[in-house]
Design a protein around this nucleic acid. Structure first.
Lengths: 341, 341
DNA sequence: CTGTTAGCGCCTTCAC
DNA sequence: GTGAAGGCGCTAACAG
């Protein structure tokens, strides 16, 4: 359709560009790489020839010299999950479209498979690795003898010598609860998912911090699983035992959706009678809820971007530090917590 | 932790292997590549040296010569969407873990960006490409002058010379409706999403086919958007205008969730009074619904696997055909359509 | 400022 | 059966 797209995509080599520009290949190389040992006029001609031929340097050849491949491996154990996607997008953003390519490998949560994929990535000479887990619980380190920089995202490494980036779930719980308190709620309950998850525990800590700071006490706290069904059941029981509850912090948007459903079934008006807040800010769930669901966004895309930047920096030889860094989260206010008038 | 993992992964070159085996580089190369111009004993020694050094050939150097890189590009315009994920998983399965690596690129639905990513992939000498769209509507072909095999998945190419794999949405609509009819439903309505989507139109055709074959007529059909909110609103209006409706085919699981909510609000029992069926079989939505939602699964993982196999075959020089192929879908029965007793 | 030379790691002729 | 030489496309040293 377009003129340039109809050109054959068969690789154009630097030699051809040089020939068209009437210079040697090394001069052409210098001109294209912005080295200032070349006359402006010559550079002009080379650039022109290159763009006319749609020249793009062969990264293989380039990488062969530099030892760099312009390639980063993204090793995930959560391809079916939704956490890896925004992280991936953030990483792509940071790397810059086309500058660096991302190899995606899914280990399916299997250690054997992970080792396998790791070897595959390393043998492809990736310049760096981002490891994405499916929970925020620490995961086994890949070890210190990986020849390229590794950044752990979402799930931190269990080795403090590694660099890990993970959402600040304690602060997430605190922010959520502070928001409810600011809206005048005083009888707050917490319904969360699998208590084995660090995310569940961390958020619970944050909830308590906020309550304590406000001189309040948690009305009730229950854990089970990250599902709408549990959210419904737990809310029913909660409201039966503690009818005075005026706000529920839910461990996930799914649980929150269940809570909204039960509240509606029982004739409790949200947010007038009860406020509900979720975690993850999963748009499919939050914006389609009745009323729309206030939630905590883990800023995963930003997390992915940061992870990528760290990998980049490390590739360039900079020390990017180590340890687990908690990245800030963000409150997204919607109708389920609007302050009562 | 493990013994082998603790070896330094720093690239070992063929030269080192050759030296350790006491042969020349070229002999080492032949031995490792299984060429039979080398004595068995020599080969043995080389293989041994290679494995002792954990040698793995540098794909850059290899690709520079051979043109093959053991790499496939997955170009998507739907990274945030959920269709690409199962396709990606299927492709990974088919390629075999570690044999072939998948470069993932997201074009964000932007043509310019797509061209950019395409160039990046081609310049990295991918052996093949899988192009994944976000709708089942035909998308612009990348053209015929791509130097590697291309298979279009989910969104077919608008050029019949290309090979495209897409779910059979007509049959999906038919299967869904036949299921309702088999359950004794006779007053069936259809609520779908954006009518601009081929998926919406195709499914509508399938719905009609099934009704016609059974001598029934569609009670009503409305289109708007793929959201729960629309599902709720449309169902409310539908049941007001056509209270006799005993089954609703919904264009997506989201719409179906909205339909379930409204039915419940109006005191209609699902599935006793009304059956509801969705599309996509998005587990988060289907298994958490009240009752659980019957849906049509597009078998996307299988689609991804098939796409990968075709790319493989084409790389090996086989003719894999062309045109748009409709792949079978699958009915997943749950509580929202169980036949009335 | 420009061109020539020498590799990066590997594979493939081609002599020996 | 083996090794030496050439080159894939590019960039880094030099020499002019």
């Amino acid at each position: 359709m377009s003129g340039s797209a109809s050109r054959s995509q068969r690789p154009v080599t630097l030699t051809e560009v040089a020939r068209l520009a009437g210079v040697s290949i090394s001069t052409a190389s210098k001109a294209l790489n912005g080295r200032n040992e070349v006359a402006p006029a010559t550079r002009e001609r080379v650039m022109d020839a290159a763009s006319r031929l749609s020249f793009s340097p062969n990264p293989l050849a380039r990488g062969l010299l530099a030892g760099r491949t312009g390639t980063v491996g993204l090793l995930t154990s959560d391809l079916e999950g939704r956490f890896v996607i925004p992280i991936l997008m953030g990483a792509e953003d940071a790397f810059g479209a086309g500058q660096v390519s991302v190899f995606l490998c899914d280990a399916r949560g299997d250690t054997i498979r992970e080792q396998h994929q790791l070897r595959a990535l390393l043998s492809r000479r990736v310049d760096g690795l981002i490891v994405v887990g499916r929970q925020t619980d620490p995961r086994p380190s890949l070890g210190q003898d990986i020849p390229v920089p590794v950044v752990y995202a979402y799930a931190p490494s269990d080795n403090p010598d590694d660099l890990s980036l993970t959402p600040d779930n304690v602060s997430a719980g605190r922010i959520a609860t502070e928001h409810l308190i600011a809206g005048g709620r005083t009888r707050i309950a917490h319904i969360s998912g699998d208590p084995e998850y660090a995310a569940a525990q961390d958020r619970a800590i944050g909830v308590r911090q906020a309550l304590t700071a406000a001189g309040l006490e948690l009305v009730a706290e229950v854990f089970s699983e990250w599902s709408e069904g549990w959210g419904r059941d737990a809310t029913a029981q909660l409201l039966a035992q503690h009818p005075e509850v005026d706000a529920i912090v839910c461990g996930s948007d799914q649980i929150a959706r269940g809570a909204l459903d039960t509240a509606r079934d029982l004739g409790r008006i949200v947010p007038d009678d009860i406020a509900v807040i979720g975690f993850d800010n999963w748009e499919v769930l939050t914006t389609n809820a009745r009323p729309q669901l206030t939630s905590i966004d883990a800023n995963l895309q930003q997390l992915g971007r940061t992870a990528a930047q760290r990998v980049f920096a490390a590739i360039d030889g900079l020390d990017v530090g180590s340890g687990t860094h908690q990245l800030p989260v963000r409150l997204v206010i919607r109708g389920s917590t609007l302050a009562r008038r």
